[in-house]
Computed example of a mutant assay.
Amino acid sequence: MPDSQNKSRDAAESIPLDSLPGHAIRRLQQIAVAIFLQEAEPHGVTPVQYATMQALANAPGVDQRSLARSIGFDTSTIASVIDRLEARGLVQRNLDPSDRRVRLLSLTHAGHAVLTEVVPAMRRAQERMLAPLPPSERAEFLRMLNVLVTANNVHSRAPSEG
Rank of each mutant, 00 (worst) to 15 (best):
P97N: 10
V48H: 08
L142A: 13
T150H: 04
L148C: 15
T52H: 14
A139T: 13
P134I: 15
V62I: 12
L90P: 06
Q126W: 10
F73T: 12
A110S: 10
L115H: 06
E13F: 13
T108M: 09
Y50R: 14
T52N: 14
A12Q: 02
M53S: 04
S66M: 10
H109K: 06
S98H: 05
V102H: 08
I31M: 04
L90Q: 13
R157L: 08
S66I: 03
V154W: 04
R88F: 04
V48G: 09
V45H: 00
S156H: 09
P2V: 14
T77C: 15
A158N: 07
A24K: 11
A57P: 07
I35D: 00
H112V: 07
A121D: 01
A24F: 09
Q126C: 14
I35A: 00
N152W: 08
I82S: 03
Q64D: 07
A11L: 01
E140N: 11
P159K: 12
I82L: 08
D10K: 08
T52P: 15
D18I: 15
L95D: 09
V81A: 02
L148H: 15
H112G: 11
Q54V: 13
N146R: 10
A125G: 05
N6D: 04
A125Q: 02
A59I: 08
V149Y: 04
I35Y: 01
S136E: 14
Q29R: 09
S4H: 06
A11M: 01
P42L: 06
L130R: 07
V81T: 02
S160E: 00
R128N: 04
R9V: 12
A32P: 04
L90S: 11
D74I: 01
P60K: 04
V118D: 00
R93N: 10
P2N: 14
D74S: 02
N153Q: 07
A51P: 00
G89L: 03
G22F: 03
E13Q: 13
L95Q: 11
A121E: 00
K7Q: 14
E161W: 05
Q30T: 09
E117P: 05
L133Q: 01
T108K: 09
